[in-house]
Amino acid sequence: MPMFKRVLLKLSGEFLAGEEGFGISPDTTARLARLISTSLEGSDVELAIVIGGGNFWRGARNGVGMDPATADYIGMLGTVMNAMALQDAMETAGRPTRVMSAIPMAAVAEPYIRRRAMRHLEKGRVVIFGGGNGAPFFTTDTTSTLRALEIGAEVVLMAKNKVDGVYDSDPQKNPGAVKYDTLTHHEVVERRLAVMDATAITLCMDKGLPIVVFDLFEPGNLERLFRGERVGTLIQS
């Protein structure tokens, strides 16, 4: 696996929720921040993060009966809350961090400006993107791909919990599921593998952006990825 200088890490909002499965657990968020910060030690990797909002709200599930755009905007606000909580934990862990929001809210986050985000990365700050991409009807998978392409990231790291890559079927339901070490974007689409939503994977395919699907909480995985070692499933052109 090649070494990547600038990476975008996609996190699920549920990673912040802890055992409760809802909201933000300060202890769980602190552990996540320490894991990320420790993995960066001694590395030259420039790290950007997109975090979801599923620990607060999922438009399709929670917004039944609502205007779909409104439901999506509520979810986007949830991602900003998560970004702020992760920033606080990251800085407590000693890692300089900036939150940038696609939805302007100057009192709590910087507005997303592409060149400013890149400058933060060059200065060694972790940049957390909140607010989705500022428009409804797009998932944070698509936001991850879009932001990665905008800032010149060389890979999207899709973090999972207790799933160490891409399988031909759900490994939690099928003990005989087979793991793929490598795939092409076209194979992901052709085999209907649940890696990203269709818009995100198509954008990655069109632009030749690699994706790595891996278990974030397997000890040492993130650090190994930052060192260019093979972890999880690599998807590339």
Rank of each mutant, 00 (worst) to 15 (best):
T70G: 03
T70A: 13
T70P: 01
A71R: 03
A71P: 02
D72M: 04
D72T: 05
D72H: 08
Y73Q: 06
Y73W: 14
I74L: 15
I74G: 02
G75A: 10
M76S: 09
M76Y: 09
L77N: 09
L77A: 12
L77E: 07
G78V: 12
T79H: 00
T79P: 00
T79E: 00
V80D: 00
V80K: 02
V80L: 15
M81K: 04
M81P: 01
N82R: 10
N82D: 15
N82Y: 11
A83C: 12
M84S: 08
M84L: 15
A85R: 02
A85E: 03
Q87R: 13
Q87P: 00
A89K: 04
A89L: 08
A89P: 01
A89R: 05
A89D: 03
A89G: 05
M90K: 06
E91H: 10
T92F: 02
T92R: 11
A93S: 14
A93I: 14
G94Y: 11
P96N: 13
P96E: 13
P96H: 11
P96A: 11
T97Q: 08
T97L: 11
V99L: 02
S101Y: 01
S101L: 05
S101M: 05
S101N: 10
A102K: 01
A102D: 02
A102G: 04
A102V: 06
I103H: 04
P104R: 10
M105D: 07
A106S: 14
A107V: 14
A107N: 11
V108W: 01
V108E: 01
V108T: 09
V108S: 01
A109I: 06
E110W: 01
P111A: 05
P111Q: 07
I113N: 08
I113E: 11
R114L: 12
R114V: 12
R116L: 08
R116W: 03
R116G: 00
A117W: 06
A117Q: 09
A117E: 07
R119A: 09
H120C: 10
H120W: 13
L121R: 11
L121E: 13
